[in-house]
């Protein structure tokens, strides 16, 4: 079995994945509360917190998998992209453990993890497929012909979709992270109450930076009292602009690439409106949709184990010089 670690942002994740893609455990120590106090992820706070809990999270993952260190055949770790100080905690820990146990180590591209999360059991997706990854840090569409790699078809030119949710949430006076809060509030609102821009740059790219400005102006136009009253409508309309842009790009990519399967990943893939839209879209297009449970969409170590299954491991001692990288 593979012991996987993921510490690229603000969640400390460890998991155990079978070589057949079975998720034996996937544990996440979320730092959400910690960063909520700052209104966003503070890299130094994240890195400190990773180090504080990494051993406990690994213990937990092993215990839940009913495994001991002796059962671990290889170690996988996210080596980028992400916050460098945060990544280095996981990379240093994983390297040292693998070295001391004489195990191979697989450095994993965090985004590859999101792209192949749907290859995990019980219902593994098969290539070729289209994948939409939308999170606080990344938003892109990829084509997967072989799970060992992926081709980016289009991506955000500015803010990530999750970032747009967080910024919108902040403008609406909601807590951090804004995504789940906007989602909740939007359920009581009218998604067509306000018209927000749905920018569609290039053929398959995204742009979300204009959206938050539009929301800011809308709130100003309405005035504080009215904006407070219409908060659910604002949230629903704002959310709808993001999810509509995402699903329009998916529709175009499916048509262009002629793919029959779609997988989604990233924290925004847990958004209920996006899930509903894509379910409808896929139904209409006759495309099969893989929408993993939210725990496998947001950052987790099982997806790092999944990517490790499709990545060449490095034997001892060749990974001793492995470094983390903010960008890959």
């Amino acid at each position: 079995m593979i012991l996987a670690l993921e510490t690229s942002c603000d969640d400390t994740c460890a998991g155990v994945v079978g070589t057949d893609g079975e998720v034996l455990s996937s544990r996440v120590a979320s730092q959400g509360l910690l960063h909520a106090r700052y209104g966003g992820v503070v890299p130094e706070v994240a890195a400190r917190s990773h180090l504080e809990v990494v051993d406990a999270v690994v213990d937990d993952a092993l215990e839940l998998a009913g495994a001991a260190l002796d059962d671990v055949r290889s170690v996988a770790v996210t080596h980028g992209p992400g916050l460098i100080g945060a990544l280095l905690v996981g990379v240093s820990w994983a390297k040292a453990l693998a070295a001391a146990r004489g195990l191979p180590l697989t450095p994993v591209d965090h985004l590859h993890g999101h792209v192949v999360a749907s290859t995990l059991r019980p219902e593994p997706i098969e290539a070729p497929y289209l994948c939409l990854v939308a999170s606080g840090g990344h938003t892109f569409l990829a084509r997967v012909d072989d799970p060992r790699s992926y081709t980016v078809l289009g991506q955000t030119l500015d803010d990530a979709a999750g970032e747009a949710f967080d910024k919108g949430g902040r403008l609406l006076g909601l807590g951090y992270p804004g995504g789940p809060e906007v989602d909740r509030l939007a359920r009581d609102g009218d998604p067509e109450a306000f018209d927000f821009p749905r920018s569609a740059p290039g053929e398959l790219d995204f742009s979300f930076s204009g959206l938050k400005t539009a929301l800011l102006y809308k709130i100003r136009d309405l005035g504080d009292a009215e904006a407070e009253l219409r908060k659910p409508d604002l949230a629903a309309s704002y959310q709808s602009a993001i999810t509509a842009a995402l699903s329009a790009r998916v529709a175009r990519a499916v048509g262009r690439e002629r793919l029959q399967r779609l997988a989604i990943g990233g924290g925004v893939a847990a958004n209920s409106d996006l899930r509903a839209r894509l379910t409808e879209l896929c139904g209409a297009l006759g495309v099969q949709l893989w929408a993993p449970p939210p725990s496998l969409c947001t950052d987790n170590a099982a997806m790092i184990g999944a990517a490790a299954r499709f990545t060449e491991p490095i034997e001892y001692p060749h990974y001793l010089t492995l470094d983390a990288a903010a960008r890959l």
């Binding site: 890195a47 400190r48 990494v54 100080g85 280095l88 905690v89 996981g90 240093s92 820990w93 040292a96």
Partner: peptide, 11 residues
């Protein structure tokens, strides 16, 4: 410091 402590812990 974190690289050192994380390495030491895992070793």
């Amino acid at each position: 410091l974190r690289i050192g402590v994380a390495t030491a812990r895992a070793l």
